[in-house]
Design a protein around this nucleic acid. Structure first.
Length: 336
DNA sequence: AATCGTTGCAACCGCCTAACG
DNA sequence: GCGTTAGGCGGTTGCAACGAT
């Protein structure tokens, strides 16, 4: 399977680092015409490169919306959390980090996070292994605790546990929704922000309160990826989704939950991006403290010898997917 | 100042998948 | 249904920059 690189077909094509002149040719061409077919782009743009190389250069380096500079603490947290969920799905992880490329995330994981985890004695390969695609050895998604992530043995049990993690988090989000949806609850207005409806009335609330991280993730590529890889979840969500464009993690029939759409999530992402830029300067001042804090965070999450302990934070005698966040909300808004 | 080892990142390689004829 | 291929992805490599000796 597969095919030889396009570069092999055309000898004499340049390889190696790009020069500023080549960059300019590529940027000028794409800005004027769009990239169109990558295969023919080099010729049209006057480049002695293969289309694949041009595509990579554009996506990883020249694209105008690329965010440069060190990873923020929030981004590090996201990478760690998402890697725990989807494993080495760098493009999926990068999709949740505006302006970051899969290559950048991958490099950052391999050169920083992974090494630091090893130094701390944490096995960074506690990760999700994708389902085998071989027709000869069909197997469910596989989660391993060793470097031999290609192993397909005893995978269904681990997969089921991982699915249970998602389900737990989903139920938790639902519980919060119910709790805050109570008309008598002083936090009723906050509840609306957990699952924004996108209408103008709630728009101001969205600014005040963070939206539910799990629900956002569930409706993102990450959640989609997870659902697609787990037949049971897929079947369940397909049932829920009939008549809806996007899956909702909530099985409770509230109008709020069913009204969360992709555009809502996109809108929220935009707002967060603006906020993030405002806070960037402050974050950079805290750069020196960042590493220790991040790995303290990891230590907090990685407690226990369960290979999914990563997800769990013991909170008031029950496990929580987003322990600290839920903890804050619960403490602030506990109606009892 | 020279050498060696380490680190970080850009780029390449090979494979997979979906689209198309 | 089948073969072909462009686009995309993850793993790996190569090399410049930097620090230690």
């Amino acid at each position: 399977m597969g095919r030889s690189p396009c570069c092999d077909k055309q000898l004499g094509l340049k390889k190696g680092p790009w020069t500023p002149e080549e960059d300019k040719l590529l940027v000028d061409y794409i800005q004027a015409h769009g990239h169109g077919s990558w295969r023919f782009l080099p010729k049209l743009a006057g480049l002695q490169r293969c289309g694949k190389s041009c595509r990579l250069r554009w996506i990883n380096y020249l694209r105008p919306d690329i965010k440069r500079g060190p990873f923020t603490q929030e981004e590090q947290k996201s990478i760690i959390q998402l890697h725990g969920i989807v494993g080495n799905k760098w493009s999926t992880i990068a999709a949740q980090l505006p302006g970051r490329t899969d290559n950048e995330v991958k490099n950052y994981w391999n050169t920083h996070l992974k090494k630091q985890l090893l130094r701390m004695g944490i096995n960074p390969t506690l990760t999700y292994a994708p389902p085998s695609t071989s027709p000869l050895s069909p197997s469910p998604p596989n989660y391993t605790t060793s470097a031999s992530s290609s192993s397909t043995t005893s995978s269904s049990f681990s997969a089921a546990r991982h699915m249970a993690q998602w389900e737990t988090a989903r139920l938790e989000a639902e519980a919060r929704l119910r709790l805050f949806s109570s008309p008598s609850s002083s936090a009723a207005t906050s509840a609306a922000t957990l699952i924004p409806t996108g209408n103008a009335d709630n728009a101001q609330d969205v600014d005040k309160e963070p939206v539910d991280v799990f629900l956002r993730m569930w409706n993102s590529d990450v959640g989609k990826s997870f659902r697609n890889q787990n037949p049971v979840i897929l079947a369940l969500t397909n049932g829920e989704e009939s008549g809806e464009a996007e899956a909702s993690p909530s099985s409770c029939n509230t109008k709020q939950s069913s009204a969360l759409t992709v555009s809502d999530v996109d809108e929220m992402a935009k707002e967060e991006r603006v906020k993030e830029e405002e806070e960037r300067d402050e974050r950079e001042e805290a750069e020196s403290r960042r590493e220790d804090e991040t790995f303290q965070f990891y230590l907090d999450l990685a407690g226990g010898d369960d290979d999914l302990g990563f997800f769990q934070t013991n909170h008031q005698s029950c496990y929580s997917f987003f322990g600290s966040e839920l903890s804050e909300v619960s403490l602030d808004n506990d109606p009892f």
